[in-house]
């Protein structure tokens, strides 16, 4: 769609690499992909990420796979969307079956458990880092009241009132549509 068009093979490799090494569910994988495509390689703009992120939340099924389909499609069309979804999920699916077969021995291993705990700690740092990276450009554009209202408000709504992410994004997009950002005017 917009910007540079990376090769499908390069995209498929990144989806496979990050989709199958990130523990802790779909959100850490989304964060790792956003960092790789958005911040490191500049293949995905902030707006493209926001669109893919929000639409993946309203798509039935597994959010992170819808996110892979959306970002793959944005960066390089249908083939990248398909390979993105397959790459990010097929090895994990095989591993899930393998773990089902030998569940007790696999999760009872002390080395495995210690490695997974350490990875989860690293992923926690990664998620905070990504949250910071998403808000940082707006802090530099004299748009801090929007950051406080939308990022801080979202955190408050989730943690204090346990409002669903979908409802929060509907509210945020309504606020955004009514309160135009300087660059969008």
């Amino acid at each position: 769609m917009e910007g540079m068009k990376p090769s499908v093979a390069a995209l498929a490799w990144i989806y496979t690499k990050l989709g199958n090494t990130t523990f802790g569910g779909g959100d850490p994988t989304i964060v790792a992909l956003q960092r790789e495509f958005g911040e490191r390689r500049k293949w995905l703009t902030g707006e493209q990420f926001a669109l893919a992120f929000s639409l993946s939340r309203v798509t039935p099924g597994t959010n992170v796979l819808a996110f892979c389909a959306a970002t793959g499609y944005q960066m390089s069309g249908w083939a990248a969307a398909m390979l993105g979804v397959l790459g990010a999920s097929a090895p994990s699916a095989v591993l899930a079956v393998w773990l089902t077969l030998g569940f007790e021995s696999a999760v009872g291993n002390v080395y495995t458990n210690a490695a997974i705990l350490a990875v989860l700690a690293a992923v926690t740092g990664m998620m905070v880092s990504s949250s910071f990276a998403l808000a940082r450009p707006s802090l530099n554009r004299r748009a801090w009241p929007r950051v406080v209202l939308l990022s801080g408000g979202t955190l408050l709504l989730r943690e204090v009132w346990n409002i669903s992410p979908l409802q929060i994004m509907v509210v945020a997009s309504t606020i955004g549509a009514l309160w135009l950002e300087d660059e969008a005017r």
């Binding site: 926001a50 707006s138 955004g176 969008a184």
Partner: peptide, 30 residues
């Protein structure tokens, strides 16, 4: 312009959502 502004608002909301998602993860891992 309204759609673009709405998308940017979602981006900032996503920052809050990711921070929120890191809390239970951190509680287990840290």
């Amino acid at each position: 312009p309204r759609l673009r502004s709405a998308i940017r608002a979602i981006l900032l909301s996503a920052a809050g959502l990711l921070l929120s998602a890191s809390i239970p993860l951190g509680r287990d891992a840290l």
